[in-house]
Each structure stands twice: as structure tokens, then as C-alpha cells.
Write a protein that binds this DNA or RNA. Structure first.
Lengths: 215, 215
DNA sequence: TCTTGAATAGGACATCTGTCCTACTGGGAC
DNA sequence: GTCCCAGTAGGACAGATGTCCTATTCAAGA
């Protein structure tokens, strides 16, 4: 390999994460890799979008959960501005519901934040070469998630209220519908989440990240 | 200040976190601070304990949630070996139930992982000087948590089963007690967690980290 | 245009849930 | 030794829950 070739192979990346520690950590990891250059770091999706106009990174490392903009929307926006960009999603949770949507929105791979350095840089090189990177144990979950029915937004609305102790009647009043309708929604949640009762449904929904708790 | 004085003021720290990215990030943050030296990094509490025998750090940065050993137990063990050590707890969650116990076990302060660099190094310097470091918004939660009643282990056992869709009768069978007794436990959970029904109780328990979900 | 799916609503019914009582037991704390 | 608390258990009852039906409306898609 000549010097010119390695210059051509230089991978320019942009790090997007709202945790300063994570940004620093990723930056440090890549600084010891000669073929990878961190062009910039952003603390929010909005910041990332404005950076994208000034620089042309090959790969964006993007945290799925950030305040402000939802991860999947960020992916769509990034690819609208720069369709050729490869997006590698970062997340804390193995069972993040949004992973599926992130992949559908056009992410090339994803990583858990507890991944060792070796694997992280490897993943960056793979998505740079336009190969998908999906850790095997998670591919499994992705697969399971594919066959799952999604809750409708109304069902989610109902279930969130149920999670906070509302009876069917309470929910009905808050949503201005009949409690019979609420029962229909709850029953449908039970079916889709394979839960025996409303309490298990809430547990499953929280597990999958469908219901957000206060911090 | 003479050169000797600044050598004396050198703060030696040990980083304990199972996430490689976080270890690297903290390491990078401290590398730009002349008065702070990272003596070592450990990926588990066990590793930290064995490192502690070879080096004498002043401050340990400890992740509360790690596989293997629970954070509070790690704190107790670290202080048993080296009573003078200052422990600064790191956690992801603002409302981590274990924060309270961590402070009781002898931690000098704690930090959220989304804290900016400036504040992290500041916190290290404070606990090095044996001053407690507690972010104000979290001190508030600590205060609230103080007045809270803890669930008994039996109640927790019952509530975990309830979270997974067991009826009172189901729980009774699994624990070899009467369903009347189960009702007593559930009612007592509702009181302690200020919940209107079992579903809200489960939500609150998950929020507080009392019930662990699969990943 | 026709069909499908989501959201809406009601009746009827068996079960489950939560509450308010009372009461006994065994293990610690003082 | 006595007191207190957690855990145990029971009866009774009103109200909530989940299921099985049927049925209407409306918007999106084929």
C-alpha cells in the first residue's frame, strides 16, 4: 500500500452524543487508529446537522437517545442532507425498540456502549466499506422484533395512562372516550405484548422502551 | 506554590467502569488536568479490589451498576481495605435507588454520566479534599428518598411476580402462602410507593430501580 | 370503488382487585 | 420478660378488569 492509498482510505467520522464522557471516550479510542480521523463532535442532532454542512464525514456515530430530536428522525435528516453518509448507531440498551426503526431509517449498523474498543473501530471500518455491522446477539433481538406487532399511538397513549395508575374509567375521561373503548385498547395491548394483564403489559412496554419513565 | 507543593497535591485516581468507552472518556478528561493522575482502570469491582492492593489511589471513580458485584457492596469492600479512600460514584440515572445506599455505604459524592468535563474534574478535586460533592438537583432527590419507606424483601418478591402478570392467586401458589397474605403485601406496596393500584406500583418500582428488567 | 384497519361504543358475565376488619405467630430490641 | 413488627391468614364486599360478542364510522390504500 502506497502513502497515497492510505490517504485515500482515511475514514472521516463525526461523533454525536450528548454525554461529554462518551464523546471524549470515542475520540480517545479513534486517536490511536491511524486510518480514522475524528472531524468533529456534536452534543445534539441539531448541532450535528449544522456541522454536516461544513464538513463531509464518511461515517457518523450517533447516539439514539438524545434530548431534543429523536434518533430516527436525526437519521432521516442526516441522510436527506448527505445521502451517501454511513450512520452507525450507538445505544445503551440491548432491547431498544428504536433500534428497529433506526435500521429502517437507514442506519448501517449499531453498537452498544459497553462494546470493547477493538469492536468499535472494527464496526466503523465495516460501515465505511458499506457493509452492515450488527452484533450477533442483537441481530437475534432484531429478528424477534421484526415479527412483533407495533402498538398504535392510541394504544400507547392508553397504556401510558394505565402505567400511572389510571383505571379504565380514568383513561376514558382523560381521552374523552368511553371506558368500553379503553377496554378494547387495553385488550389489544395485551395481545400485541403477549401479556396476561395490564400490569405485565406495562412491564413489557417499559422493557421495550415504548413507555418512557421520568429519568 | 512551590514545585514540591504541587507534587504533594497530585491526585491519584482509579477508574472503575465496565464500559470501555466511559473508561477512555474519563481517562482522556483527566489527562488534560495537570493535578490529576489516572493510576489505573478496572472493568469490574473485583478487578478494582485487586488493583487497590498494589496502588494507593486517593480517589476511586466507581460505576454503581456493574455486572458481578453490586455497587454498594463494592464501596464497603473498598473502604474495608483502604478506609481513607474517597469514593465518587458514577451513575447513568438521576433516580437510582442505590444512590442513597451508596452514600450510606460511604461514598463522598456522585456524578451523572452526562456531566460536563469541568464539573467532573471539579468533583474529583472536592472529594479529594474530603468535601462531599452532590449536584443540587440530585440532592433534592436524595432528600426525598430519605423519607421514603423501603419495601421489605417479601414485598419486593411479591411485586416482581405481579410485574410479570401474576394474579394474587398465582403469587400465592409460587410463594406457598395464602392469597390473602399476598393481598396484604400488595396493599402495603401501594402505601409505601404511593401508588393507586398494582400497575402504578410496578411502574414506580421500575422507576426507582427496585425491580430489574431483562436488559 | 371496494376493502381493510383503527377507533369508537355497548351488553353481559365471570374473575380479580383493593380495602377494612380481625387474629395468630415467631424473632428481635430493649 | 415484654413489646413491637413482619409475615401469616381469614371474611366480606364494592368496584375494577378482561373477555366475548356485536356494530358503526371514517380514512387510507388497492
Amino acid at each position: 500500500m502506497s502513502a497515497e492509498a492510505s490517504v485515500q482510505e482515511q475514514i472521516n467520522i463525526l461523533i454525536v452524543d450528548d454525554h461529554p464522557v462518551v464523546r471524549q471516550g470515542l475520540n480517545a479510542m479513534f486517536s490511536s487508529e491511524p486510518d480514522i480521523a475524528v472531524m468533529g463532535m456534536a452534543a445534539s442532532a441539531r448541532e450535528a446537522l449544522s456541522l454536516l454542512e461544513r464538513m463531509q464525514p464518511d461515517v457518523v456515530l450517533l447516539d439514539l437517545r438524545m434530548p431534543g430530536m429523536e434518533g430516527t428522525k436525526a437519521i432521516t435528516e442526516l441522510r436527506r442532507i448527505e445521502p451517501d453518509i454511513r450512520i452507525l448507531v450507538l445505544t445503551n440498551y440491548r432491547s431498544d425498540e428504536y433500534i428497529v426503526r433506526a435500521m429502517q431509517a437507514g442506519a448501517m449498523g449499531y453498537l452498544l456502549k459497553n462494546t470493547p474498543q477493538e469492536e468499535i473501530v472494527n464496526a466503523v471500518r465495516m460501515v465505511f466499506r458499506r457493509e452492515r455491522y450488527v452484533p450477533t446477539d442483537i441481530a437475534q433481538r432484531l429478528f424477534e422484533a421484526m415479527g412483533r406487532e407495533e402498538l398504535s399511538s392510541r394504544e400507547l397513549e392508553v397504556l401510558s395512562l394505565v402505567a400511572h395508575g389510571c383505571t379504565n374509567k380514568d383513561v376514558a375521561q382523560q381521552l374523552f372516550i368511553s371506558d368500553k373503548t379503553v377496554r378494547n385498547h387495553v385488550t389489544s395491548c395485551l395481545l400485541k405484548l403477549k401479556a396476561k394483564d395490564r400490569t405485565e403489559a406495562v412491564t413489557r412496554a417499559i422493557e421495550r422502551g415504548l413507555i418512557r419513565l421520568q429519568e
